[in-house]
Nucleic acid binder design. Structure first.
Lengths: 218, 218
DNA sequence: TTTTTAGGAAAACTGATATTTTCCTAAATA
DNA sequence: TATTTAGGAAAATATCAGTTTTCCTAAAAA
């Protein structure tokens, strides 16, 4: 085995301006911008290279094709769709406030312009790139669903609410909270809701949902 | 004024195989298939002409450009998104059954593969064709919203339910009913729900919603 | 100084596709 | 029959974008 760090000499010719990995990151970032701005078909590889500040020659040395570049970009973005919530904190709250917090977190994530823009790309291209639909399902949908479903189950087990199918319930809750504003954003009809609107909507949804499945003592 | 039906002679040369309007319809239908199958960018005008059974020459004589063809196709499709419900019939039903019926109608319309396919096209291309987003909003969203909102208002005025903002409530109701299954369809993850599933979901939603905003007698 | 490598700029190559045009034939009237 | 028009088939044109290649220069080691 050879210890490259010291023993072997640097190669003869002109050294690389920067490590390939770094250049690749620059290309990925430029590609992200370009794809989000122009969609898959509309994105120009020349513009990607331009944005990244490298020549097309270097770009194609480091990335295989436009299609794979697209997949890398989307997967990287999707893998960051994580619903952050402090579960310890929720335990100390009354049920309705806890659900409100959850919905605020989910709404904030969902209405993020980057999220919407990525969703649009995924929906537009999932025919051509079925792996992207699968990745989206796995990384964006399942994970956030599980987080919310876990909480619902907990409340049910504590007798705070009455639900038979928690998975369906999560889907409904999410639809109620985000579908309409998100669709308006995607169509370019409305700007993202601001924080106050998100809070208001979350409160409404939480109340509606909890009243709808609060245990009845008939 | 000249009476063309009898007086003026037919023109000299070879007569048209069929009226231009008819040919245009054939082209529109072929284009609809092609666009739905391949999206805007992926659609080939040659294939459209082929499907329609006309030459590209004839096609371009009758339609201006690909872009305008696309808009015609989408607008025509959208204008058929009408939420059909028999309002007379609803009046005779208890509130929860009436709402169930409404949601079944809305779900059936929404989960129709043609609807989903059109929505995908609209979402994918609304950047390039803002008029399409506007048409979709006006024809598909507003109209069905108004139908549902009218009913909600009526129930509120009769004291059957307690809602302050009926527009928001309709949005939530719809999201609850359709977002998750529709998204799964768009991603190609699930087939459309069958009628039984739609009914079940509608019943769940109606119950949840009505329990959530039934007047309280505290 | 010579050799060697990295990589930019731009041209070339390739393939696809919207759109136009040419050429030809069929079917009608005069 | 001579003339005129409709329209199909296919070639021509134009453009665009992905990908490759050429040419050239900078910067390092030998």
């Amino acid at each position: 085995m050879v210890d490259n760090t010291k023993v072997s000499k640097r190669p003869r010719g002109r050294p690389q301006i920067r490590p390939d990995d770094e250049t690749r990151q620059m290309i990925l970032q430029a590609a992200r911008q370009e794809f989000h701005a122009s969609g898959y078909a509309g994105a120009s590889m020349n513009r990607v290279a331009e944005r990244a500040g490298v020549s097309t020659k270097t770009m194609y040395r480091l990335i295989p094709t436009k299609a794979e570049l697209f997949q890398s970009v989307i997967s990287a973005r999707i893998s960051r769709f994580i619903l952050e919530m402090d579960e310890e904190h929720l335990d100390g709250l009354p049920v309705d406030e806890a659900l409100e917090h959850i919905l605020i977190a989910y709404g904030t994530l969902t209405f993020d312009p980057d999220t919407v823009s990525s969703l649009r790309l995924v929906l537009a291209e999932c025919d051509r790139f079925p792996e992207i639909a699968a990745a989206f399902d796995e990384l964006a949908l399942r994970r956030t669903t599980q987080t919310m479903e876990g909480w619902l189950r907990q409340q049910r087990d504590r007798g705070m609410i009455e639900i038979d199918d928690t998975a369906t319930a999560v889907g409904m809750l999410r639809g109620m909270m985000v579908m309409e504003p998100q669709r308006a954003m995607m169509l370019g009809l409305k700007p993202p809701p601001d924080h106050a609107e998100i809070v208001k909507r979350a409160r409404n949804c939480a109340r509606l949902f909890l009243d709808g499945c609060r245990p009845k003592q008939r």
